[in-house]
Design a protein around this nucleic acid. Sequence first.
DNA 1: AACAGATTTTAGTCCCATCTAATTTCAAAT
DNA 2: ATTTGAAATTAGATGGGACTAAAATCTGTT
Lengths: 222, 222
Amino acid sequence: MLSQAIQDYLKTIYKLEEDGTVSTTAIAKELNISGASVTGMLKRLASMKLVDYNSYKGVRLTNEGRKIALEIIRHHRLLELYLREALGFPLEKIHDEACRLEHVVSQDFLQKIEEILGNPEYDPHGHPIPSKDGDIEISNEKPLVNFRNGDVVIVKRLSDHDPQMLSYFEKMKILPSTIIRIVDKAPFNGPITVFFNGESQIIGNEISKNIFVELYEEKEEN
Amino acid sequence: MLSQAIQDYLKTIYKLEEDGTVSTTAIAKELNISGASVTGMLKRLASMKLVDYNSYKGVRLTNEGRKIALEIIRHHRLLELYLREALGFPLEKIHDEACRLEHVVSQDFLQKIEEILGNPEYDPHGHPIPSKDGDIEISNEKPLVNFRNGDVVIVKRLSDHDPQMLSYFEKMKILPSTIIRIVDKAPFNGPITVFFNGESQIIGNEISKNIFVELYEEKEEN
DNA sequence: AACAGATTTTAGTCCCATCTAATTTCAAAT
DNA sequence: ATTTGAAATTAGATGGGACTAAAATCTGTT
Ligand SMILES: [Mn+2]
Ligand SMILES: [Mn+2]
Ligand SMILES: [Mn+2]
Ligand SMILES: [Mn+2]
């Protein structure tokens, strides 16, 4: 069994990999540990064939490493959803709890909650949940701030790094699948006036970089 | 935060303390580690004032140590019950899962499941669940084997050490609150014929040492 | 080409939790 | 009182995972 530390490293590297190969410092920042510690661990991970590591040049996950990362991410996201749906956790508390539980839950446990949740596809932040054999949807939402006046968008995903921001999202009822019309973007990266849930609201520019959306196509169903 | 290892030591010492002070070897056996390792840890626990330790004479928990032990036991038992009631885990699988989860669940998590379970008093094996401030019922059930022909008893608690035995109990529907009449005890520690749930069954003598019961007093309620 | 600054790695240390082998202590029986 | 076997402790080692301080490497600028 891989240690909690190793599992979290792999998960972190997976997340950072979107932007090409991953630097020591990036991992250190993300995990809040020293660069030296990261270098040490990267060597170990390399010797276990979980990453490809070139001194001074960063790391990438091997297929094996990626498989494990996705496994843990699967745990994490199923847990987040369960905490929210079944136990009524507030949005900003699910991440930390899931990050501890993800390393100790059994397959049995996951099986049960997945069943109870009805084989869900997304976690409460809108992140796709990897399948048992490590398939994961590649999503391409853009931050709300990228869109223009008049655009109608649907929220797909919320950035999950700042608990306070999540608490704000929850209070504002800005959640995955919320439909938002952009009324007005103030100049010079100013606040954005939006309309949703029958109300007009003003949200900060910074916030709007953390709401990932897609253009909404209204589909008439019979 | 105390490590998982320390938490499990304290829990183990608590359980073994029923029989006076606790020996190094007893702990080692229970945790499946070497005696030398236990000696080392006992010194650390003593230096943390979690146990009173006298070389060659065994340990006892301090009040502080006991408080922590009961806290973890509380986690364990609430989790066992939740796994069974909410997730439908079979009796023999709840212990291991709870033993991993007990070290990482937050107060929030426990609060939620306690509420969902309706402030339960007993876990699925019939063990009392300690209160938040560490009060716990002292129970005095005796093993079924101690009783005599004709006695009618109520199951209070099942020994939880052998998963296979637990699976057997579940299959047989011998569970806490089951009422059993002892029909016949074969001589020389032979099998015991019992009657419950409208059926006659024969159970081994060994098994009957692991079913803890009380004499049942039928109370006529109006 | 040389330098400056940032990034990264190395060297050395620490604590935790375990191990095996050797030694010491205890208690029971002779 | 000695002996002896079991129980417990000490001594020494290991691996994991973190740290700080110092050295090395890289990169972008003069
Ligand atoms: Mn984690
Ligand atoms: Mn998430
Ligand atoms: Mn445990
Ligand atoms: Mn129990």
